[in-house]
Design a binder for these strands. Structure first.
Length: 498
RNA sequence: GCCCCCAUCGUCUAGAGGCCUAGGACGCCACCCUUUCAAGGUGGAGAUCAGGGGUUCGAAUCCCCUUGGGGGCACCA
């Protein structure tokens, strides 16, 4: 195992986001490719917004995608694995505390007594003067004595890290050399809240250092935060890891992908019937490419090819159409039993929702696979496709039964004749190959276009104009039910025509 | 406002000075196949490589400027 250590550090303040999943994926791929270690750390210091439900959603979502970590908590309430635990920041408070004390002792950080009102006033003044917002440094100038007395009086104070003048430069693994003047960092920044809980910029550095992270692979939205982190790594006396900032995933209007404008929760995609292979494949190709024309690739195949050199610099619009296409490609590649297992929950959900009257058995679905496999862009489409098979009383609008070129009388006539032909076919030989010839012969004998006759039968028996091949559908339905639905349709047409 | 990043078909991208009159994929259109819908096959439209200057015998590829877009500037992460 190499010394490469990467991580995903989600914050349980929302459901698993497409962007988080992509970042996790890239880290996991990088670790797999280099023989390094990939771990997960929960950044739960925003106690007000963090919840166990979100934690569960994130962990199960990542597991579901097949992204697994070598160290960290596997479940929301489970124990951590790995030598650098705990892997939850709220359980690492002591570590941050001693790191802060160290900084305080060396005057690299200081107590800040500014109130929210003061800070707000500063900010407004800066805004009015058209100056960039920054902390004015008021408390940084306090003498030790002043600080001691204010501290005694105030009771609680935030802690700020001193930002000294200078240039911070680093080599980003995807962007190349990047440079920041520390005077543009917004002044001394808060690392510990007034209530004593540490803030992101601080904990992320303390932990990445303690957990020996070698490569920080994260979204580009953190690029501007990187100099702060580097300053902290240095102040704490730790080596600075390599940074790799991934391009952002975008809304169609090219702004950062957001809940407002896009579907961002992985769980929503799962609920629709996107499968992990497709999501992983799609996400990997969003901002990265093999450099070749290969595009349908499994996690393993991607891991074997993955590198940071082919990571794109510009943001990428999330294209659902392309995801659906890939999903269809992967559905076609699944083994029969696997597809059945994945389809079942969607049919169960349709049953529960009352869209169908019973949940079919695995065996029933397995038999239908050849006729539905290539017609499913997402698993959730299965009910729409063949749900009519498990509906007890199908109600069909008579108007839809009549083919475009036909009138009601012809349709009744056609269905009646077709019924007779189908009825002649015994239960034993009720197969697609047995049904097609006589029905075609019927159409020819009566001078009908076979397509029109078939369409009338199709709608009569399924209630829809787009279905799997008709004869397979009739067989799936069974002779009795097919005849019964034909009768019902004929009746419906009779009353429709008066 | 300040700082930083980015810029090839509508979208995802290939491209690391000549192989590019820019390739692939999604989507779109047409045709073939065909009982509908898909799938599949074939073909097509679609990018003067954001614009302008350089460098070079030669630039999508290197440099500069402009324009455009995005991200960040919290006691959120």
């Amino acid at each position: 195992m190499s010394d490469i250590r990467v991580r995903i550090a989600p914050s349980p303040t929302g459901p698993l986001h497409v962007g988080t999943a992509r970042t996790a994926l890239f880290n996991a791929l990088y670790a797999r490719h280099t023989g390094g270690t990939f771990f997960l750390r929960l950044e739960d210091t925003d106690v007000a917004r963090s919840t166990l439900a979100f934690e569960t959603d994130i962990l199960t979502g990542l597991h579901w995608l097949g992204i697994s970590w070598d160290e960290g908590p596997d479940t929301a309430d489970g124990a951590d694995r790995g030598p650098y635990g705990p892997y939850r920041q709220m359980q690492r408070l002591e570590l941050y505390k001693s790191a802060v004390e160290d900084l305080l002792a060396r005057d690299l950080a200081y107590l800040c007594f500014c109130t929210a009102a003061e800070l707000d006033a500063d900010r407004k003044a800066q805004e009015a003067a058209r100056l960039p917002p920054r902390y004015v440094g008021r408390c940084g100038l306090l003498t030790a004595d002043e600080r001691a007395s204010r501290s005694a009086a105030a009771g609680s104070a935030a802690i700020r890290f001193r930002v000294r003048p200078g240039i911070v430069a680093f080599e980003d693994a995807v962007r190349g050399p990047v440079e920041f003047d520390t005077s543009n960092l917004g002044g001394d920044f808060v690392i510990v809240r007034g209530d004593g809980t540490p803030l992101y910029h601080f904990t992320v550095v303390v932990d990445d250092a303690a957990m020996k992270v070698s490569h920080v692979i994260r979204g580009e939205d953190h690029l501007s935060n990187t100099p702060k982190h580097i300053l902290l790594f240095r102040a704490l006396g730790h080596p600075v890891p390599t940074f790799a900032h991934l391009p952002l995933i975008l809304n169609p209007d090219r702004t950062k992908m957001s809940k407002r404008k896009s579907q961002t929760a992985i769980s929503d995609y799962i609920a629709e019937g996107f499968i992990r292979e497709a999501i992983v494949n799609y996400l990997a190709l969003l901002g990265w490419s093999t450099g070749t024309e290969e595009e349908i690739l499994s996690f393993e195949e991607i891991a074997a090819r993955f590198d940071l050199d082919h990571v794109q610099k510009g943001g990428a619009v999330f294209d659902r159409e392309r995801l659906e296409w890939l999903n269809g490609q992967w559905i076609r590649r699944l083994a029969d039993e696997d597809l059945v297992t994945r389809l079942l929950p969607f049919l169960e959900a349709d049953h529960v929702a009352g869209r169908i009257d019973r949940t079919p058995t695995a065996e029933e679905i397995r038999i239908l696979l050849p006729m539905i496999r290539e017609r499913l862009p997402i698993l959730g489409a299965v009910g729409d496709l063949i749900g009519f098979l498990w509906i007890d009383r199908l109600t069909v609008d008579p108007a839809t039964i009549v083919p475009k070129r036909w009138d009601i009388a012809t349709t009744r006539d056609g269905l009646h004749a077709a019924r007779a032909v189908i009825a002649e076919t015994g239960a034993v030989s009720f197969e697609a190959d047995e049904l097609e010839p006589p029905l075609r012969a019927l159409a020819e004998a009566r001078g009908w276009k076979a397509g029109d006759l078939f369409m009338a039968i199709r709608v009569a028996v399924t209630g829809r104009t787009a279905t799997p091949p008709l004869f397979d559908t009739l067989v799936a339905l069974g002779r009795d039910r097919a005849l019964q639905r034909l009768d019902a349709a004929i009746d419906a047409l009779a009353s429709a025509s008066g």
